[in-house]
Design a protein around this nucleic acid. Sequence first.
DNA 1: GTAGCATTCAAACGCCCGTTTTACCTACGA
DNA 2: TCGTAGGTAAAACGGGCGTTTGAATGCTAC
Lengths: 206, 206
Amino acid sequence: MNSQHFSTKERILGAAEQLFARLGFAGASLRQVTAAANVNLAAVNYHFGSKENLINEVFRRRLDELNAHRLQALEEALERPGSDLEELLGAFINPALDLSLDRGGGGAFVRVLARAYAEHNDALRKFLSDNYGHVMKRFHAAFAQRLPDLDKEELYWRLDIVAGALTYAMADFGVIKRKSGVTEQQHRERSAEHLIRFAAAGLRAP
Amino acid sequence: MNSQHFSTKERILGAAEQLFARLGFAGASLRQVTAAANVNLAAVNYHFGSKENLINEVFRRRLDELNAHRLQALEEALERPGSDLEELLGAFINPALDLSLDRGGGGAFVRVLARAYAEHNDALRKFLSDNYGHVMKRFHAAFAQRLPDLDKEELYWRLDIVAGALTYAMADFGVIKRKSGVTEQQHRERSAEHLIRFAAAGLRAP
DNA sequence: GTAGCATTCAAACGCCCGTTTTACCTACGA
DNA sequence: TCGTAGGTAAAACGGGCGTTTGAATGCTAC
């Protein structure tokens, strides 16, 4: 299986991501993680130092990439001459959507991310703020330029609502059932379309 | 403290709610719960049978009431002659807001509810669907009447987005910091206002 | 080939978990 | 007044937890 192609560290990160998504940080034990990764129990403490630090590394591996993709998509949208609000929203939402569809655990990671929000852990919040703060600022500036009549603070509130709805949608919290005959890819693309249309109207609200 | 005025069962439920909100279902132990409730460890298994069942009772205690309040607020809004979309949204959002401001643990409960979504547990989903399914159907019908041009399935998607944003906002996931000089009550009222305005525009989107 | 280092391994450490047992209160109807 | 049922108490059960240890292994450079 994985054992052949990936290093011990990578196998641990992958297995941890899956199990944290399914069972939570407290609910998934290192014995379960190392068994799924097909490595020795002591490997976690050897390579990562502690369970706490393993959790952080699970985040870091994905967030840097998502970060970069969002900013890149935003710059591309801003460079297009006639780009509208929906395109800016797409730059924010689509990279997250792509991640959730990624082979190799991205789908599990968005659920881990949703759990992180629910954990309400201060250290984790600081970590996320450090990693995401400047991204949100950049998007805020771009949206503010497109919505000059909207109060700046009001815009912060609304972007916060968009982020909430996106987190919720990505982690598949909702009650909307995927119909048979619709692939997961199609389901998520439809999710993104609905979300963008809804959010664009919400941002344009008087 | 509580010991004087509440029964053993009530003290356990209250302490469990607080600790589940803070540490999660797996993260909070029965030893922590019973110590906080100032009761004997064995009392949980005596009164509730198991930790699993205690979790269910923590939900049941609050959900029945929230359920009833939402439906009552909806009926009242529908009976008012000139009631608009914002009033229907208020009937959905405000009871949840009130619960989150409730003395005696409501604020903790909304975070427990957010954790429940993140848990993605099938048994818990069925429990929530059984308790909430008819409420969502009732709201869907009311919104459909106010938005006759909107496709029924599209409306389901949009209500799902509203529910997501609400869950996120209630559990205080967002990055919006409460300013000094603003009480928590005021902060949450402002939250609801922003959410209703945003959601109303999103629902009306073409 | 062997010295040196990074990695893997099995085993054990002390601790905390959910649950059960058994004895002990305490109030109330017969 | 006594028997009894409902509640509380302390202690123990087996088992799983994160972490540490020290020996065995593989790999690279000389």
